[in-house]
Simulated assay, not measured.
Amino acid sequence: MSRARCERCLRPSDHCLCALIPALGSRTRVLILQHPSEVNHALNTARLAALGLTNAELQVGEVFEDLALWLSRPGYRACLLFPGEEAVALKAYSADDVSVLLVVPDGTWRKARKLLHLNPLLAALPRVVLTNAPASRYRLRKAPGPEALSTLEAIVHALHTLEPEASFNGLLRPFDALIDGQIAAMGEETFRRNHS
């Protein structure tokens, strides 16, 4: 028998995070392209980001037939948040900058690279990277390096970089609650043994 779940945040009903999810506006539009293997992941941070930002959308797939349409939003300049040889550091908007459509692949590094391979239009976008990223709060995952962030954390840091006058920290409240809940479910001793 499966547990009842919230259809919005996809968490078990008794662990619903909806009360913690904000509705934050941003000048930047965020398009999250999620690999299908991430949809049912217990820590689906991309979904939390899409739910918490009024100017964001989440699309799931491997090949995105409508990508050209999504990238051609009037008034926005699309760029891909992903490392690469010609990637440039994100910086705050200046007065005359066009707003950014920040495209964020969601999945393991291997799956994200696969999304780029299967969607040449995506791979051809100008790339941007984060600088001075804070340490990850994702205490349940063994990161490939100290600069590795969850999708949600990367989006929050990118928005703070682009729009330093605004605060997007509210997006981290459901994330922190999710992590704390997972640690509580496994028990402190198991957490320390496997993740410290």
Rank of each mutant, 00 (worst) to 15 (best):
A56G: 00
V98R: 13
Q34G: 02
A78D: 06
G75C: 07
M1Y: 00
G75R: 07
K111D: 09
L171Y: 09
V98F: 10
W70C: 05
L162S: 11
R192T: 10
R141N: 00
A133E: 10
D96R: 08
L115V: 13
I155C: 11
V98Q: 14
L121A: 15
T28E: 08
A123E: 14
L149M: 02
P126S: 06
W109P: 10
L159G: 10
L101G: 06
A46C: 04
G170V: 11
L48Q: 06
P105D: 08
E188F: 15
F64K: 02
V63P: 00
R3K: 02
R127N: 13
S196M: 12
V60F: 03
L178I: 09
S150H: 05
L102T: 08
A49D: 05
D14P: 04
R47N: 03
M1S: 00
E153N: 09
G25L: 15
H195S: 09
L51R: 01
L69Y: 00
Q34M: 09
L162Q: 07
K142N: 01
T108D: 09
L53A: 02
A49G: 07
G52M: 03
F175L: 13
A112M: 09
T54N: 03
T108G: 09
A78K: 04
L20E: 13
M186T: 14
H195G: 12
L172I: 06
T161Y: 15
F82P: 07
